[in-house]
Nucleic acid binder design. Structure first.
Length: 615
RNA sequence: GGUUCCGUAGCUCAGUUGGAUAGAGCAACAGCCUUCUAAGCUGUGGGUCCCGCGUUCGAGUCGCGGCGGAAUCACCA
């Protein structure tokens, strides 16, 4: 009899260990209700959640929904079900009922065994894989070529790149794309200012990064233009008219027309200045650690957009105004009229986005096309989708605007006029320097070469910056506080990196002492509550990745990494690892540490954050 | 005015499909380095979850109505 029980117990562990405990419990509880109350329950009535820390137990059944079957008090019902599980499901080692909550205790041995299975999985992403992988385009960055990247772009790039890694980890085929806004009146402004005031200055001659040089002339245009407007207003002209007829503005508009007419001189200037900007962007992208599989240029897609608009006009999907401008009427969709081609025939932003979307679909036949674009463009994407739908492109349902919030400074929005734009290159540099200062003060890296040290400072500085931005829910506007962002304690990237390096350090020490690591023999180990807490948290990794993918939220993953690091540090503080005399327990703790470091590494990797081996 | 998003501790933020006494970090104060990295750990204080009504066994979470903030509604991108 005893033998049979042990065998039964063993079988049920083996069978259930690889499944999710919640699912198994659900089945067992269904069975309990069937047998004890002679009723069939639907899945949604059985709510299992992890037991809150303040109570004893591992999983909790909310019994309120089951009262209709038991026709009894919550306490009695919980007790009945608890007793049934105790008798029929050996993994349950105890239970208690508080109010309407049945707290189930899972045997420590089960957790240890489950941990063994987790530790032998090849990758930690195995359980994240989706059944039906999709082809997903992720568009991010989308810079203008008239000024350098700033803090807002950093959030955009980090979100886009992390989204790429998270979706890929779930088995999707993800293509990273970037659309460069390389045409339009704003580009002409920089070009015109350079032509007029530049005296042939180049990145080489000035020693300036190309994107910064071009940005300088964009600002200069604005300055000179404002002076002209002021002058006209003081001569008695009305402000709006002055803005329209200021010589610099009319010249810029002329230039755009010439550009669209392929005027050689203008196109050559445009090519030269854009190439400056691109080489500048490349440097910044590289520093940020982001890249792209395919780069689109508006200058190449706006004509496709024009063709699409003209053909839709022929099909009477669009209409022509008296002044020959072309519009979409979206009032039936609850939106407004939208201009698609100006009366002079030139394209607008929407025109080229239509072109890009169609172009992309023809190229990739994507299931989803995710636009990582700020929430200031919510309306734009609503309109884009509506127009494509109207034009009969059924795949427009797969267009997703991943709308993220603005980055504000403590004193409000960044404004170029007030010079409060936080430049991407400057910020990266500052973060690295701060990392350097902190590291040197702590003085733990004295045996490293200068080059190795710089690499560590870079990882820490960027880790701090990336984590600071990614830990916030992408949909929300966030405040960037320059003082707080360089804090390396608490809920920060460096804290997580530090936890990782601590574990690495344990293994280095083990090697020095000749202690074998990676031993999976820990039979009979009695794990403590802290260790089981860690196992529970590690177990949640794959689920967290899935949730982050479905919700398009790297923040969920970032917060998970933090929680795991905190949990591990508590464990690390209270329990010896290498100092543990019992070899089985030492093996167990070593493996627990190893798995933790791997999960932290994987989680941070999905965020695009590099981990130093020492710090 | 229309549409969308947001409102949680002094500050910055968590809070998976509605669940128990709402959590972290920073800042403040008090402890812990002769032992695997103190970028760590432990403790104390700090809340009208914007307000009201509703839905129900149960609402920070869902619905409606207010209040407050942001974005947008361009022949700019």
């Amino acid at each position: 009899m005893l033998y049979i029980n042990i065998l039964k117990c063993y079988l049920c562990r083996l069978k259930f260990a690889t499944k999710k405990m919640e699912i198994v419990l659900k089945e067992k509880i269904k069975e309990a209700v069937k047998i004890v109350y002679n009723s069939d329950v639907t899945d949604d009535l059985i709510q299992i959640q992890e037991t809150r820390k303040d109570f004893k137990g591992d999983f909790t059944l909310v019994v309120f929904p089951l009262l209709r079957f038991s026709k009894n008090t919550p306490e009695k019902t919980g007790e009945t079900i608890g007793n049934y599980l105790m008798d029929n499901f050996p993994v349950v080692s105890g239970f208690n009922v508080i109010k309407g909550f049945l707290n189930l205790e899972i045997s420590d041995a089960w957790w240890v065994e489950f941990f063994g299975i987790m530790a032998s999985e090849k990758t930690h992403f195995e359980n994240c894989l989706v059944l039906k992988p999709e082809t997903i385009l992720v568009e991010y960055s989308s810079p203008n070529t008239n000024k350098p990247l700033h803090l807002g772009h950093i959030r955009n790039n980090l979100l886009g790149y992390s989204l790429y890694r998270i979706l890929s980890a779930c088995g999707h085929k993800v293509i990273k794309t970037n659309i460069v806004n390389d045409r339009g009146i704003h580009i002409c402004k920089s070009m015109l200012a350079w032509q007029k005031f530049g005296n042939g200055e180049t990145p080489q001659s000035s020693g300036m990064k190309g994107d910064h040089l071009v940005g300088k002339y964009y600002v200069l245009f604005d300055k000179e233009y404002k002076l002209q407007v002021e002058r006209l207003v003081s001569q008695g002209m009305e402000e709006n008219e002055a803005k329209n007829s200021a010589p610099l503005m009319t010249e810029a508009r002329d230039m755009l027309l010439k550009w669209e007419a392929d005027d050689n001189k203008v196109v050559d200037l445009w090519k030269m200045m854009n190439s400056w900007v691109y080489s500048g962007f490349d440097v910044t992208y590289k520093k940020l650690g982001v890249d792209f599989d395919k780069i689109y240029y508006e200058s190449e897609t706006y004509k496709i957009g024009k063709d699409i608009v003209l053909s839709a006009l022929k099909d009477n999907i669009l209409y022509k105004n008296d002044d020959t401008s072309i519009w979409a009427d979206l009032t039936a969709e609850g939106l407004d009229q939208k201009l698609l081609l100006r009366s002079d025939g030139t394209a607008v932003y929407m025109t080229q986005d239509l072109g890009t979307a169609v172009n992309r679909f023809n190229e990739y036949h994507f299931d989803k096309n995710i636009y990582v674009v700020g929430n200031e463009q919510n309306y734009h994407f609503q309109v884009l989708k509506a127009i494509l739908k109207k034009m009969g492109y059924s795949w427009s349902d797969g267009l997703i605007h991943f709308s993220y919030g603005m980055v504000e400074l403590p004193e409000g929005r960044m404004k170029s006029r007030e010079g409060t734009i936080v430049d991407a290159d400057d910020l990266i540099k500052e973060m690295q320097e701060t990392a350097k200062d902190v590291s040197l003060e702590l003085g733990k890296l004295s045996d490293f070469s200068a080059e190795e040290k710089e690499d560590i400072f870079r990882k820490i500085g960027l880790g701090a910056l990336k984590y600071y931005i990614l830990k916030v829910d992408p949909r929300k506007n966030m405040t960037f506080n320059p003082v707080e962002s360089i804090d390396f304690n608490g809920n920060t990237g460096p804290f997580i990196q530090y936890t990782y390096t601590r574990i690495k350090s344990v293994f280095r020490k083990a090697e020095q002492l000749g202690i074998q690591t990676g031993m999976k023999d820990f039979t009979g180990v009695k794990a403590g509550p802290k260790e089981i807490d860690l196992i529970k948290l590690l177990r949640k990794f794959s689920e967290t990745v899935s949730v982050a993918a479905i919700g398009y939220s790297p923040a969920i993953l970032a917060n998970y990494c933090y929680e795991l690091s905190r949990e591990y540090n508590q464990f690390y503080h209270d329990f010896p690892i290498l100092g543990e005399d019992d070899p089985a327990l030492r093996n167990f703790r070593l493996l627990l540490s190893k798995l933790t470091s791997e999960v932290i590494y994987s989680g941070m990797w999905l965020l695009g954050i590099e981990m130093p081996e020492r710090m």
